[in-house]
Design a protein around this nucleic acid. Structure first.
Lengths: 194, 194
DNA sequence: ACCTGAACACCGTTCAAGT
DNA sequence: ACCTGAACACCGTTCAAGT
């Protein structure tokens, strides 16, 4: 079947799977999580509402894929922010990147963590924002053991995650999120230098 | 009003509003947030699915009321935990009560914070777990100003909230939540004594 | 005043049928 | 192999009609 105007090949074939993920992310960013339904995704791609089931087991499977993209974006953003910084300055940069991501991609951020308990969509590294290499860097800079570094890692993650969530949920009366992030990381100074 | 078998008068009248809230909380605790729908609540109370609209503007309004109950429970639980403790020990007790609440009422806890951005369902006090009196206590014990106490309050809230959320979302590989709570509050020691 | 039943526009999911 | 259309069992919300 050939067609004249709208889309060569006429099939979304090959990468319908990819198109669905992209469309889902677009809906999420532009209209929030309330607008994100399987049928709406299919509609935006121009395909029947049953079509997604040939590429994903169910709604959750598609959204899991979206969540994984989100985690990749977050990780990239944090790595970029911490690059070329000392491990300690890096921690602050990580924090800012984390809450910044939550602020600029609120619906995606929430989906990432809401989406399923443990395993597939998780970051897969360990109990922290930060990967193994960074963790080693912290150990050396702080002169502490891996166990302590892991605790500090969890502390920082919890703080930034909690702050982001409270902010997204409208629980923080006023003040910019970036400002509060700096307040908290500054407050955490003594923990790192103890 | 006396009743013979199931319910005299046949009306749930007077306190249908209350019955709806209670039923919603029961569903939430027993079967999680996925089971919580307006129609299911009405079904459990034994009333038509349109009946709730005579007592709540919409689904959100009913769930807002549930969320407020949750905040009351959380507040009570924290006050009980911190009672008769020094302000500093109180802070640890607050933390334990907070994550403990999240653990024993996971679906309710999530609903409380998911439910709407700011205002009605919020705790209404300020940017923290803790009420004004406790905040004053912290000021005195730490010998710091109100501004600093508020920052510490936000730090603690963010930590405990983030930890709870990450735990509920299955992001923490292993270990009991209570144990991690103690780790983090212990780690925060230097901040309080600085 | 309070509740119901039917109706409407949406969901997610399944499945026979088409190419 | 991949997609569609119809169908099913659910939603939230509205509204005329009942007491």
């Amino acid at each position: 079947m050939k067609l004249e105007i709208k889309d060569a090949g006429g099939y979304h074939h090959g990468d319908l799977r990819e198109a669905l993920i992209k469309a889902a992310m677009e809906i999420l960013e532009e209209r929030g999580h309330e607008a994100l339904t399987l049928r709406e995704v299919a509609r935006n791609v121009g395909v029947s509402h049953a079509a997604p089931y040939h590429h994903f087991q169910d709604k959750k499977a598609l959204f899991d894929s979206v969540a994984m993209r989100g985690f990749q974006m977050l990780k990239q953003s944090m790595e970029r922010a911490a690059a070329e910084k000392s491990p300690l300055d890096g921690l602050q940069a990580y924090g800012l990147a984390y809450t910044g991501f939550a602020q600029t991609h609120p619906a995606l951020f929430r989906l990432m963590y809401t989406q399923v308990g443990g395993g597939k969509t998780a970051q897969g590294t360990e109990d922290g924002i930060v990967d193994d290499l960074t963790l080693d860097g912290i150990c050396r800079a702080l002169g502490c053991g891996r166990e302590q570094a892991r605790r500090i890692n969890l502390l920082l993650w919890s703080c930034m995650h909690g702050l982001s969530m409270l902010w997204l949920d409208g629980q923080l009366k006023d003040g910019r999120l970036e400002e509060k992030t700096l307040e908290l990381t500054h407050l955490l100074g003594p923990v790192l230098r103890s």
